[in-house]
Simulated scan of single mutants.
Amino acid sequence: MRSIQRRLSLGLISVMVVVGVALAQTSLWLFEAGLQRYLEAGLRNDAENLLVALVRAAGGVQLDEQRLSPAYQRPFSGHYFRIDFDDTHWRSRSLWDQELPRLPEIGLKGNLQLGPEGQQLLVLRADYKRYGRLISISVAQDYTPVRESFRLMRRIGLILGLAALLLVLILQRVTVRRALRPLETAREQIAQLQQGQRSQLDTQVPLELEPLVAQINHLLAHTEDSLKRSRNALGNLGHALKTPLAVLLSAASSEALKDHPELSKLLRDQLEQVQQRLNRELNRARLAGETLPGALFDCEKELPGLLATLTMIHGEHLDLSYHVPPGLQLPWDREDLLELLGNLLDTA
């Protein structure tokens, strides 16, 4: 089964990649749209300045070059214009031997056109009426540096995004481990339950684990109650059978069976075996007490009670003692070892 950590990491990566790409593309698109609107205002201002540079002369309309920006005089400067009126058109010296195409419609050309020296141009066409003539002015600006800046921003954004994603994954891993730490604590407590070191799980757990811990504790209480009832029922049954067994043993040794010695011996042997078995089970139930099964055998805790029970059963003339290292716990079931030692010492 796939781990929770891996599933959370994959889900987080997917969400962050989708959201990050969408936000990055949307942000760049909005930024570029705003920048183009800003550049459009500058291009419209350049077109109006070119319109002002048109003056009336003896030969007709002329362009006063003294009013032109020096950028229009320098070849491939990134600033270009084209003026169309009647059947004539003028172009800036910055175009050199290139032509700036005339846009079919007025306004800003969204799709960039290839200009001189492989430049990508942002072109604006504006139509005016001056000196009784319809004049169309197209101005353009090199958009290549802006595009290069966007590419650089994309690369930097990608690097920063990957770094942020890595940092978030690390923080997420740390957070998940801390969040799952109560589960590790619960696992340790269940191991302690198996070893008999506790009777139930701690209830001071996160809200999400409370139903699970409550159910486990309820199951433990139910199991312990069932064991208590079983031990009580076994004790009651054993005590109830003692009297009939004693009567049967007495009957097996009575004068009525003197003529059948073999039958009498067989009955006595079988009844004595039943009585011994019954006494062992009663001793086991008494020695086990109220501890849950599966508990380790703590020698310092269990041996004094075992020896005291045997002394009480067989008389005070017995001198029973033990010597064990401090804190010794045997890795065997408590009840099984109590039964084994009890039967061994009882037989001895």
Rank of each mutant, 00 (worst) to 15 (best):
residue 1 M to L: 08
residue 3 S to L: 09
residue 4 I to L: 15
residue 10 L to P: 01
residue 16 M to A: 10
residue 18 V to C: 08
residue 18 V to Q: 00
residue 21 V to I: 14
residue 21 V to H: 04
residue 21 V to C: 10
residue 23 L to N: 03
residue 27 S to L: 09
residue 28 L to W: 02
residue 28 L to R: 04
residue 30 L to F: 10
residue 31 F to G: 07
residue 31 F to Y: 11
residue 40 E to S: 14
residue 41 A to Q: 14
residue 42 G to F: 02
residue 42 G to Q: 14
residue 42 G to N: 12
residue 43 L to T: 02
residue 45 N to Y: 15
residue 50 L to W: 05
residue 51 L to V: 08
residue 53 A to D: 09
residue 59 G to R: 10
residue 64 D to Y: 10
residue 64 D to A: 09
residue 72 Y to H: 07
residue 76 F to M: 08
residue 77 S to C: 10
residue 80 Y to N: 04
residue 84 D to C: 08
residue 86 D to T: 05
residue 86 D to F: 03
residue 91 R to P: 03
residue 91 R to S: 15
residue 92 S to N: 10
residue 95 L to G: 06
residue 96 W to C: 06
residue 102 R to F: 12
residue 108 L to Q: 06
residue 111 N to Q: 14
residue 115 G to A: 11
residue 117 E to W: 07
residue 121 L to R: 04
residue 129 K to C: 00
residue 130 R to V: 00
residue 132 G to K: 11
residue 133 R to I: 00
residue 137 I to W: 02
residue 138 S to W: 02
residue 144 T to I: 12
residue 145 P to E: 12
residue 147 R to P: 01
residue 149 S to V: 00
residue 155 R to D: 14
residue 160 L to V: 13
residue 160 L to F: 13
residue 161 G to Y: 05
residue 169 L to K: 00
residue 171 L to P: 00
residue 174 V to S: 06
residue 179 A to S: 07
residue 184 E to A: 14
residue 185 T to Y: 01
residue 185 T to A: 03
residue 189 Q to D: 15
residue 194 Q to M: 05
residue 195 Q to S: 07
residue 200 Q to M: 05
residue 201 L to R: 03
residue 204 Q to D: 14
residue 208 E to F: 06
residue 214 A to M: 11
residue 227 L to I: 08
residue 230 S to A: 15
residue 231 R to A: 09
residue 233 A to D: 15
residue 235 G to C: 01
residue 236 N to Q: 15
residue 237 L to E: 12
residue 237 L to S: 13
residue 239 H to G: 09
residue 245 L to H: 03
residue 245 L to V: 09
residue 252 A to G: 09
residue 258 K to S: 05
residue 262 E to C: 06
residue 262 E to Q: 14
residue 278 L to W: 03
residue 280 R to N: 13
residue 284 R to M: 07
residue 288 A to V: 04
residue 288 A to N: 07
residue 290 E to V: 08
residue 290 E to P: 00
residue 291 T to I: 01
residue 291 T to Q: 11
residue 292 L to G: 04
residue 294 G to R: 07
residue 294 G to H: 06
residue 297 F to T: 01
residue 298 D to T: 10
residue 313 I to V: 14
residue 315 G to R: 03
residue 322 Y to I: 04
residue 327 G to P: 03
residue 327 G to T: 02
residue 327 G to Q: 07
residue 330 L to T: 05
residue 332 W to K: 10
residue 332 W to I: 13
residue 334 R to K: 15
residue 343 N to K: 09
residue 344 L to E: 09
residue 345 L to Q: 09
residue 346 D to I: 00
